[in-house]
């Protein structure tokens, strides 16, 4: 994973070229279908198809593993638990269903540029207009947040240093209160700066 830029792996495969909206809709349909599949063979087929799609996207094994890795222990625990309660067949079905769904969702994430995905999600959030968030403010809100993460990470580092200087390293309160107050100060200064640039007009 490359820091804060997300999990997107550049490429020129058919999957990369598919529009983000189509991939999201496809993912929704496939996940619904997965819930309906009951036989281990059908789910095994789905797993093979998923592996084939990964091969088609040519993102490499490391990127693929990074998507499934967060659920690896869960899958093991789930399989063991289900084996005890509903037998090996049911265990295979449930575990495969979760792993395949997570892998497919990961594939969409890997093959779609973050900016492209954000554009689709912004369109999906259009109803926010009803509460006074027009599309411009919505995209401003999203990009402000992305910009603010490193600022606050930096602030958190400084608060940690201050904590060390005060000799209260272990107190979570001595960490969180200055962090949140600092964040609020930053937010209100940011808001004033935006107003000053005529965002309220």
């Amino acid at each position: 994973m490359n820091g804060r830029t997300g999990a997107y792996v550049p490429g020129a495969s058919p999957l990369h070229r598919l529009p983000a909206g189509a991939k999201l809709a496809g993912l929704a349909v496939v996940c619904t279908a997965l819930v309906l599949l009951r036989s281990p063979f059908a789910l095994g087929g789905a797993a093979v198809v998923t592996a084939g799609l990964y091969a088609l996207s040519r993102v490499g094994v490391a990127a693929a593993w990074a998507q499934v890795r967060p659920v690896r222990w869960f899958a093991v625990a789930l399989f063991a638990l289900q084996w005890v309660f509903v037998g090996v067949e049911g265990a295979a079905v449930t575990t495969l269903r979760v792993v395949v769904a997570v892998a497919l969702a990961g594939l969409v994430t890997i093959t779609t540029r973050t900016s492209e995905m954000m554009a689709v999600l912004e369109r999906l959030m259009a109803p926010a207009r009803l509460v006074g968030l027009d599309p411009f403010r919505l995209s401003l809100l999203l990009s402000l947040t992305i910009r603010t993460v490193p600022v606050l990470a930096d602030l958190a580092g400084r608060v940690r240093d201050a904590q060390r200087a005060r000799g209260v390293e272990r107190s979570l309160r001595a960490f969180a209160v200055p962090l949140v107050v600092g964040a609020l100060r930053h937010a209100d200064a940011l808001g004033e700066a935006l107003s000053a640039r005529g965002l309220d007009d």
């Binding site: 990470a153 958190a156 964040a183 965002l199």
Partner: peptide, 23 residues
């Protein structure tokens, strides 16, 4: 006037704060 700019900044900063607390 339901969504003033100052609130926009606060919402963005708190979204970022939740992310930073996961670091």
């Amino acid at each position: 006037r339901r969504f003033p700019t100052g609130d926009l900044a606060r919402v963005a900063v708190f979204a970022a704060l939740i992310a930073v607390l996961g670091l």
